[in-house]
Simulated assay, not measured.
Amino acid sequence: MKGSYDMLDHRYQTFLVLATTKSYTQTARQLYISQPAVSQQIKSLEAELGVELVRYERPKLTITPAGVELAAFVQRVQVQADAVVATLQHPQKVRQVTFSTTLSISEFLAPQLIGLLQAQHYHEINCRVTNTHVALAAIESGDSDFALIEGNFDKQRYGYEVVRQEPFVGVVAADHPLAQQSAVSWADLTAYPLIVREEGSGSREILENLAHAANVTFAEFPQVVTVNNPTAIREVLLQGSGISFVYRSVVAEALKSGKLAVLPLQAGQLRHDLDLVYPRDSYFADDYRRWATALKKG
């Protein structure tokens, strides 16, 4: 909490430290107060809110589900407060920006955003490529200002702007047997190896949902190859080594050159939202909306 500006009752700050350390002793040491004072503040906060935040059964301290939600909220408020104060103190200085992006989007959308931020003369731009789960966690912790993601998320928990609806397509090498058919069913797909992204990837989650809707599981494929990079998946497909599902923009050049082909699935083409996600009620929401609008046009 060093260097932060306390916008909340000090009891909330104490609770946030306790939720992180899960230790009254460590919390007291970190805040330079007594252990009984920590306990008293937490009990006072619980009484005021009428909610149990902590369960302590020696030697284990557990943060309740309500406590976890409150700690996440306090963390978001603190991060926002620090950013706002820094902006108010130095209005002429363009702040640095840090964002997360999922691997698939890093292939085509993140470079456009970086170019946009460069044009706006941001001095320091930090782009972190990760999966949807980690990207959302980084927003919660304040490690990222916002994220570009394609995975599912709690739309009540975050602010967000839909950047575009991107086709999510089944893809094979142009000379693959399935590419020669006029129509393909999910039953046809299960005769070939399936190349998928890793657990935690938004693309994998979308594919799992698609397969489930068609009453198909990954276990029905003769092989399931997990690759944690869309570029590598593209190369594996070019070898004719199986089928995969990716965003059309990831393989646009290979489709244009005729090296890869989109599967003519009977279920039709799925379009999935690509979102710019940020802390709910963010002070910088107008900036995020402008960037999302610019990306839509791009």
Rank of each mutant, 00 (worst) to 15 (best):
M1F: 09
D6V: 05
R11S: 12
Y12L: 13
T14N: 04
T20P: 00
T20C: 11
T21S: 10
K22C: 06
S23F: 01
T25C: 00
Q26F: 02
T27K: 05
Q30G: 00
I33S: 04
I33W: 01
A37I: 00
Q40T: 10
Q41W: 00
S44K: 12
S44F: 05
L45E: 10
E46Q: 13
V54R: 08
Y56Q: 07
E57P: 04
K60M: 06
T62P: 02
P65R: 11
A66I: 04
A66M: 11
G67M: 10
V68D: 14
E69V: 10
L70T: 04
A71P: 06
A71M: 02
A72T: 07
R76G: 07
Q78F: 08
Q80A: 14
D82N: 14
V85G: 03
T87D: 12
L88F: 11
H90T: 13
Q92E: 14
R95S: 15
V97Q: 04
V97K: 05
V97I: 15
F99K: 03
T101V: 15
I105H: 06
E107Q: 15
L116F: 01
L117E: 08
Q120C: 07
Y122P: 06
Y122L: 11
I125E: 03
N126I: 09
C127P: 00
R128K: 13
V129R: 12
T132K: 05
H133M: 01
A135Y: 00
L136K: 00
G142S: 06
D145F: 03
F146R: 00
F146Y: 08
I149E: 03
E150D: 13
D154M: 08
Q156I: 03
Q156R: 14
Y160M: 03
E161L: 01
V163S: 05
V163W: 04
Q165K: 14
E166L: 08
E166D: 14
P167S: 13
V169Q: 10
G170K: 05
G170H: 09
V171R: 04
V171D: 06
V172F: 01
D175M: 08
A179E: 11
Q180F: 11
W186G: 15
A187T: 13
L189C: 14
L189P: 04
T190V: 12
A191K: 11
A191C: 11
V196K: 02
R197E: 15
G200K: 02
S203L: 12
S203Q: 12
R204P: 07
E205V: 10
E205C: 03
E205G: 15
L207M: 15
H212M: 09
N215F: 08
T217D: 02
T217K: 07
A219Y: 05
E220T: 07
F221L: 02
F221V: 05
P222G: 07
V225G: 01
T226Y: 06
N228C: 05
N229K: 06
N229T: 06
P230Y: 04
T231V: 11
A232P: 06
I233L: 06
I233T: 01
V236N: 07
Q239P: 02
G240L: 03
G242N: 02
F245A: 09
F245G: 02
F245I: 08
V251P: 01
E253M: 06
A254Y: 03
A267Q: 15
L270A: 13
D273Q: 14
L274I: 15
D275G: 05
V277A: 10
Y278D: 02
Y283W: 15
Y283I: 07
D286L: 12
D287M: 08
R289M: 04
W291L: 09
T293Y: 01
L295T: 09
L295N: 03
K296R: 13
G298E: 11
